[in-house]
């Protein structure tokens, strides 16, 4: 039997740079109220959302990703040719073949980087980050771009009182690369497919094509069930991620949960008993729920505003349709 040489990568990985892209059009709650019976006060009290960004025709999944990635690469201080992998997490790219990651890798100017899309809903950023870390550890790539991108306005039922106000569009990207010290902790992740009905696309595309339904598919959810799972089950997962990283809430500087709903965020903070000194991302107020893009977008904003700084220790946790989840502790770029 021939002897196969083992692969050899970097000892550890870290996030080296982050970038975000928010569509130009800002949509206030008043616009949402044109199609549902509700009020600005109700939307704010149930979700915390004041405005969100909706993409124009030109702000495609690929274009938003390229913008966010360019910023992340510049922030990381590397050249684009050094990128060996491009991972894109999205559920709202409507041309599924080929993967949009290949177009992004090409237009960015990478040197034939491995490129693929993943589907892990609102946990997509954590799933992508975990894959990137593995690729760097085994030497498959030296630097990996992880992108979360959504045009959820395309999957929003504007007549659904429970979700019309919730979703937004945007892209967030990070560059992950080699490190001499651990800067991305163990990932606590998993799936609960028995709860697949809790958050889902209403019907398959083919039902719409075949005319068995009149309405284009949209994302729908069972609000109370999602809230209970997100707050109480995900707080346990978040705690497990802290334990796995060997730290406590007292060691944390920043908490960046998926921006699903400000009420979920506030209740998680309470359930986790986060100390006052921990900065909590509440980017949802002006960004809405952007699924896979929400964590890198929130990270980028906290660093841009100075609320968080490079080297801070952050707990990130994504959770959503599947149901799926992923939590880990990272050092901020």
């Amino acid at each position: 039997m021939a002897k196969i040489k083992p692969s050899k990568g970097a000892p550890y990985a870290r996030i080296l740079g982050v970038g975000g892209y928010r569509p130009i059009r800002v949509v206030p709650n008043e616009v949402i109220l044109e199609t549902i019976e509700s009020s600005d006060e109700w939307i704010r009290s149930r979700s915390g959302i004041e405005t969100r960004h909706w993409a124009s025709d030109e702000e495609t999944v690929a274009q938003m990703s390229i913008e966010a990635s360019g910023k992340a690469i510049a922030d990381a201080g590397i050249s684009v040719e050094q990128i060996g992998g491009v991972i894109v997490s999205t559920v709202s790219h409507f041309k599924q073949t080929p993967a949009v990651a290949t177009e992004i890798a090409d237009k960015l100017g990478t040197d034939k980087a491995a490129a693929f899309d993943i589907s892990a809903g609102c946990a997509g950023f954590g799933y992508g980050l975990t894959l990137a870390k593995g690729m760097i550890a085994d030497g498959s790539a030296e630097y990996v771009l992880v992108i979360g991108v959504e045009r959820l306005s395309d999957l929003t039922d504007l007549e659904d009182r429970a979700t019309a106000f919730l979703f937004g569009d945007g892209a967030g990207a990070v560059v992950v690369g080699p490190a001499q010290e651990p800067a991305i902790g163990p990932t606590v992740w998993g799936s609960e497919g028995d709860k697949s009905e809790t958050i889902k696309q209403t019907v398959p595309w083919t039902d719409y094509r075949d005319g068995t339904v009149e309405k284009f598919p949209a994302i729908t959810q069972e609000g109370q069930a999602v809230f209970r799972w997100a707050v109480f089950e995900m707080a346990k997962v978040a705690q497990q991620a802290l334990d796995a990283a060997g730290i406590t809430v007292d060691d944390l500087d920043v908490f960046i949960p998926h921006q699903a709903n400000v009420r979920i965020i506030d209740s998680m903070v309470k359930t986790l008993k986060l100390p006052e000194h921990v900065t909590v991302a509440r980017d949802i107020r002006t960004t809405g729920n952007t699924s896979a893009a929400s964590i890198p977008l929130a990270m980028e904003r906290l660093l841009a505003t100075g609320e968080a700084k490079s080297g801070d220790t952050a707990l990130v946790i994504g959770f959503g349709a599947g149901l799926v989840y992923a939590a880990t502790v990272v050092t901020l770029p």
Binding site: G223, Q224, F227, R228, F232
Partner: peptide, 23 residues
């Protein structure tokens, strides 16, 4: 107590009274 606070009430009641209240 809105629909989301109700979930918090229910979870607290479950713990306090050792009862399961499904969604």
């Amino acid at each position: 107590v809105d629909s989301l606070s109700m979930v918090e009430v229910v979870v607290a009641a479950e713990e306090r009274f050792d009862v399961k209240i499904p969604d």
